[in-house]
């Protein structure tokens, strides 16, 4: 475990906590894409199939449980909670899951490290995580009025990926046998998707203005 990896995990954890806190205390999920949240639940489910078979560390197992638990509770809040679900704007959040899920599945079946169920699912989760933010970014662009917590949530998610890249660079030099190009490409694509958002996030921060994405 290096400092970049730990910082990446922590920003990832904070992003989820910020979102849960927003939903739980304000009882609102305005501006949050259910599609993205459902895709994350799918990402964690398919990635952590090894949670009960391969023990890596207590830290690893606990974090996996947190990410699984939080992603499913966020989906539950938006779909089922009697107050929260009223703030969900279904008409704006129209991105189709299968546009992302099917290509990622096909890609994972053909391009993977080893053709086993667990390995294909793990690869699928990497591809899907890379693009799972798209419905959320589309929603941000549509609603334009982005509240602080939603902006911070997306910023923390992007920061997590950027820190993971630094972690891989570090690991590349310290443990060369670990490097795998599938992880790199998926991770870089995922981080690039945030580039536009980051640009406007820093602009609004610098000018002390409310975050707004151009139409």
């Amino acid at each position: 475990m290096n400092i970049f990896r730990l910082a990446g995990d922590m920003t990832h954890l904070f992003s989820v906590l910020v979102l849960l806190l927003k939903i739980h205390t304000i009882k609102s999920c305005a501006g949050i894409s259910l599609k993205t949240q459902e895709l994350y639940a799918l990402v964690f489910t398919t990635r952590y199939l090894d949670i009960f078979t391969d023990f890596i560390s207590l830290y690893n197992t606990v974090m996996k449980l947190i990410f699984l638990g939080s992603s499913f509770s966020i989906v539950w809040y938006i779909r089922r909670h009697k107050i929260v679900r009223r703030s969900y704007d279904k008409d704006q959040d129209t991105f189709r899951h299968y546009f992302l899920v099917i290509p990622c599945l096909v890609l994972a079946v053909f391009i993977n490290h080893k053709f086993t169920f667990k390995e294909v699912m793990w690869t699928f989760s990497l591809y899907l995580e890379a693009v799972a933010i798209l419905p959320q970014l589309v929603l941000l662009q549509r609603t334009r009025n982005i509240d602080n917590l939603t902006g911070q949530y997306v910023f923390l998610l992007g920061a997590y990926r950027a820190l993971y890249i630094l972690n891989w660079i570090y690991r590349h030099f310290t443990e060369p046998h670990y490097v795998h190009w599938i992880t790199w490409i998926a991770g870089v694509v995922q981080t690039l998707l945030y580039a536009d958002f980051f640009y406007y996030y820093f602009q609004s921060w610098k000018n002390n203005e409310k975050l707004q994405l151009p139409a």
Partner: peptide, 10 residues
């Protein structure tokens, strides 16, 4: 270890 990178990551 012949594990691909990332299996110990989250």
């Amino acid at each position: 270890k012949d594990q691909p990178q990332g299996h110990d990551e989250l």
